[in-house]
C-alpha cells in the first residue's frame, strides 16, 4: 500500500445522502478478476446516459471538478453492498480522500484497506463546504492525517477528525493488515486448540 501524506486539493462535491455502492460501481461492472480499471465506471449511471454520453450536470463531468483528489458526499456514504470494487473505483479514478458526515461501516474498512482516507466531519462543516463550493468551484481542502485535521482554505475553518490509532499507523506507513496477521500465526494456532466451536466439528 502507498503511504498516505498530507493532501491539499480541490474537491468534487456530491451533496446526495445514502450514496450506495451500487451507484459507486454498478454490479454489471464487477465481473473483472483484477483490481484495475474500475475508475472508468465510477458512478457509471450518474455519469453517462444509456448511449454512453456524459451527463452534463454530473459533477465528474465538470472539468473544474474532474481533477479533484477529494470527494465530498452527503451523509451515510458507501452504504449497501460490501463490494470493495467501490473503493477500487474511487482510488482508481484518482481520489485520495472521501469526506462525509457519516460512512457505512464496511465501506470505511474497505477504503482504509486501500489507502483511501474516509474523513468524517460534522454535518455543519459538511454543509459549509457544499455552500462555499457553489460560489467557488476552486475551493480547496487540506487533509492532514498526522494531525487528524481537515481545513477549508481561505475560510479559517478547521475540524479534527477521528481515526483508529492502528489504522492511522498503517496508512502513514503503508502497512497492510495481512502482514501483521501473518506475523502472529503461532498465536492463531494456539487459539485453535482452545476453541469451543472447533471442538464440535471435525
Amino acid at each position: 500500500m502507498e503511504k498516505f501524506t498530507t493532501i491539499t486539493s480541490t474537491i468534487a462535491p456530491l451533496p446526495i445522502e445514502d450514496v450506495d455502492t451500487d451507484q459507486i460501481i454498478p454490479a454489471r461492472f464487477l465481473k473483472a478478476t483484477t483490481k484495475e480499471g474500475f475508475g472508468q465506471n465510477l458512478f457509471r449511471d450518474w455519469r453517462y446516459d444509456e448511449n454512453n454520453n456524459p451527463k452534463k450536470d454530473f459533477v465528474l463531468n465538470d472539468p473544474e471538478f474532474s481533477k479533484a483528489k477529494i470527494l465530498v458526499a452527503g451523509k451515510n456514504f458507501g452504504c449497501g453492498s460490501s463490494r470493495e470494487h467501490a473503493a477500487w473505483a474511487i482510488t482508481d479514478y484518482g481520489f485520495k480522500v472521501v469526506v462525509s458526515s457519516f460512512f457505512a461501516d464496511i465501506f470505511k474498512n474497505n477504503a482504509l484497506n486501500n489507502g483511501l482516507l474516509p474523513v468524517q466531519v460534522s454535518q455543519e462543516f459538511l454543509n459549509f463546504i457544499f455552500e462555499k463550493v457553489k460560489a467557488d468551484k476552486k475551493l480547496q481542502l487540506t487533509v492532514n492525517l498526522e494531525a487528524q485535521t481537515i481545513e477549508i482554505a481561505g475560510h479559517n475553518k478547521k475540524e479534527h477528525f477521528d481515526i483508529n490509532e492502528y489504522k492511522k499507523t498503517c496508512l502513514l506507513n503503508g502497512y497492510d493488515d495481512i502482514d501483521y496477521l501473518l506475523s502472529i500465526k503461532d498465536k492463531i494456532e494456539q487459539y485453535e486448540k482452545t476453541s469451543k466451536y472447533l471442538s464440535f466439528v471435525d
Binding site: 460490501s82 461501516d105 495481512i178 501473518l182 500465526k185
Partner: peptide, 22 residues
C-alpha cells in the same frame, strides 16, 4: 458479517480478521 476483498484475503491467509468491536 460481510467483508471486503482485502479482508477475504486476510481470512484466507490467516483465518483471522482485524475488527473493531461494534
Amino acid at each position: 458479517f460481510g467483508i471486503g476483498t482485502s479482508e477475504v484475503e486476510q481470512v484466507l491467509a490467516t483465518q483471522c480478521l482485524l475488527q473493531t468491536k461494534p
